[in-house]
Amino acid sequence: MDQALQHLVNGTVLGGTYALLGIGLTLIFGVMRVVNFTHGELYAFGAYMVYALVSLLGINFYLSLLLAALLGAALGAAIELLLLRPLRRADIDSVMLVMIGAALVLQNAEMWGWGGVAKLVPSPFAGTPLVVGPISVMPLRIFVLLVACALLLGFWLLLDRTRAGTAMRATFQDAEAAALMGVRVGWVNTATFAIGSGLAAAAGALLGPVFMVSPTMGDLVGLKAFAIVILGGLGNLPGAAIGGFALGYIEEFGGGYVSTEYRDAFGFLLIILVLAIRPQGLVAPRERVG
């Protein structure tokens, strides 16, 4: 029982960042109908930026997190403007190929720029765990969960409560009708890609100090992001949040009770099950925010 509580806590921490990752990816798919293969690399980018800012430039840890997310958003905006905008009228195959190419370029650039050795990001949090009854948690992990939840809440408020958010959801649902209302659909696309990428970079920036930062970290995470999005249903924002936490728990409990080595496999096992039994995702399509 105590062990289960411990896994629950760990799964929640992991799930929060997975939710960020999934929401970013599903948002981009929902608005732009683009399958973003660079998502995992933006996650890695966020992690490397925190490493560079904190370890190499000596910038304050919290400020570095913020900057890493913003740089991720800027990189996303650049990808949208340079690669996707010229392909607005291209078929889906061309867009996919270009995105796969971009992911390869980013990954190799990381390898080239940072080398193959994993890096450690120092954080200002104590290395001794907080112990509450039977549960012990690293303070850094609590911080990561709080920031992830704050970002999720902030994103939801932006989408649900602001004029820009409403325009974004409208574009999600009917881009031509939105254009007739005066929405600059091109800018909504850029903003969407930037926000989605910023969320991925934020997730990487948050988990970078928890784990290690390595050039291949983006691959596995990219796959996981797709797993989360499939769990929640493509283009389904609340679904992505739920899928993120679901994956966090599955990995944590699977890794804890069955096998640590196959920890990453449990998530994919779940995807296969979901696709076989409930291909529309765990969450009903009518609950989509879009």
């Binding site: 409403t166 959801r169 409208a170 649902q173 009917d174 031509e176 009708a177 939105a178 007739l180 989509r288 925010v289 879009g290």
Partner: peptide
């Protein structure tokens, strides 16, 4: 006001 109404269904 476009053909087919085109209201935003989930708004």
């Amino acid at each position: 006001c476009p053909e087919g109404r085109r209201v935003f269904p989930h708004l």
